[in-house]
């Protein structure tokens, strides 16, 4: 079991969190003309890195906030956590 340090509540069990995907994906700018390919990339295309990965998690059974987690996909070590609006 992982322990994730919620930036709001402190160290909590992974059981209280849900995974929310890659945190590095940027939504295309609003009202900007984009190609189908760009939209397809935004919706479906994900890297699957072996090592350091920035992820979104939600503390669903705690404060219900979305947070960013920097985690190693190989060792599951968690390096740092951030509030959702914090720049990494």
């Amino acid at each position: 079991m992982l322990h994730i340090k919620c930036p709001h509540c402190g160290l909590r069990s992974q059981n209280e969190f849900t995974y929310g995907g890659d945190a590095t994906v940027k939504r295309p700018e609003l009202n900007k003309e984009i190609s189908d390919q760009e939209w397809d990339n935004f919706v479906y295309l994900r890297k699957s890195p072996r090592g350091n990965h920035l992820e979104l998690w939600q503390h669903i059974s705690g404060c219900r906030q979305w947070i960013k987690v920097e985690r190693d996909t190989l060792t599951h070590e968690i390096f740092k956590t951030f509030k959702a609006n914090e720049e990494v």
Partner: peptide, 17 residues
Amino acid sequence: CPYNFNIFNKNNCINST
């Protein structure tokens, strides 16, 4: 509940499972 209750004191509250 997976929370560490050893640090749960008077006038503390938590959301958990």
